[in-house]
Amino acid sequence: MLIHQLALVSETKSNTITPSQITRVAAALQKQATRDFAPLWQVNATVDAFDRLEDVPVGYWPLIVVDDVPGAAGYHTDENKQPYSLIEYSDSWSLTASHEMLEMLADPFGNRLVSGKSPHPDQGQARFLVEVADPSEDEAFGYTINGLLVSDFFTPRFYDPVTVPGTRYSFGGHIQAPRTILRGGYISFEDSATGDWWQQIWFEGNEPKFRKLGKLSGSGSIREAIDAQTKTVSRLAASGPSSKQYLAARTLTAHVKESTSARAGVWRAEIERLKGANPAEKAFKDKAAKPAKAKTKAKGK
């Protein structure tokens, strides 16, 4: 099976991301990709942190943290149609990075469509753009990995034709029915009857609403066009610090830092102890000594 190889790298100028921070986020994303996402979506991926964009090996898809995302559009393709994502720096940039990573893994080229019943009451069949993190993208539905906030995502059951209680429609279990968005989320779909693109959005108010985008034309992937209008990365960057999930994650991060610092101290002490006297060396010397004693006894006879 082909493995997707992702690179997490910072290109920020006015905000500092330390190597410690970037590697910790990369580790959390790797865990999410391997432990949580792969079993449900059958996609294998590695996520590695790199110090500079120049260090990213050829063939890796970059997740690039920047101070400001032009046009607030996260997903892009390069001149060879290979994907890369921009992540706007914020206090909760791990959430945005997770969101972009998950959507890149589920639909690397931004054109994956799945058909199903339209959520619009006046429409029939629709084709949904597969954006696994959008319906539950709000940080309220995220969870933490290694103390860092990551995004929820829907499972392939999200496109089921009927609702079955107890089905896992999203990883965190917040989505209770197929093709349903939560507060702060959205979904993009094409009305098969007319070819018009629509979105169901829930960015404000007490209930979701529909907006018509019209017919797509021109070059570029569907996802690039949708992202440019929905401004996901900027909304995620702006929303982080106010939620209970985010504040809980910050508290947990502080505790995790204490515990990992304490653990690091124990390991350093262990390394120093081994430098002084390696118990394994002693064991070999004792074994080597026994045959020599036996030979001396034989000579004496």
Partner: peptide
């Protein structure tokens, strides 16, 4: 012709 992004904008 109008690009994809221009059309949606």
């Amino acid at each position: 012709r109008e690009s994809l992004k221009e059309g949606i904008e």
